[in-house]
Amino acid sequence: MKDSTEAEIIAVVTTRDKADAVTGDIPVFVAADPQEKLAISTTLSRTTRSMIHELPNGVYILIRH
């Protein structure tokens, strides 16, 4: 929790069946299965110092707080 409230979406990671649920000007990573989705998200989160959040439809978003 910082004094500022700005947060930024770095990337979106999703499995193929939910890929069309995401549109817009952000990098979208499409994974083959849930395990790969988690693996990709973890690597992205560590390398970009962002945090993995789970949307209700199972799509992962990476947000830098």
């Binding site: 988690l38 998200s41 973890t42 989160s45 945090m51 993995i52 959040h53 789970e54 209700p56 992962y60 978003i61």
Partner: peptide, 20 residues
């Protein structure tokens, strides 16, 4: 509760990774 972390009944944040 799902991906959401709670302290008692107070919501803290959404944690995506199962390992986390």
């Amino acid at each position: 509760i799902g991906p959401d972390l709670y302290v008692g009944d107070i919501q803290i944040m959404n944690v995506g990774g199962p390992t986390a």
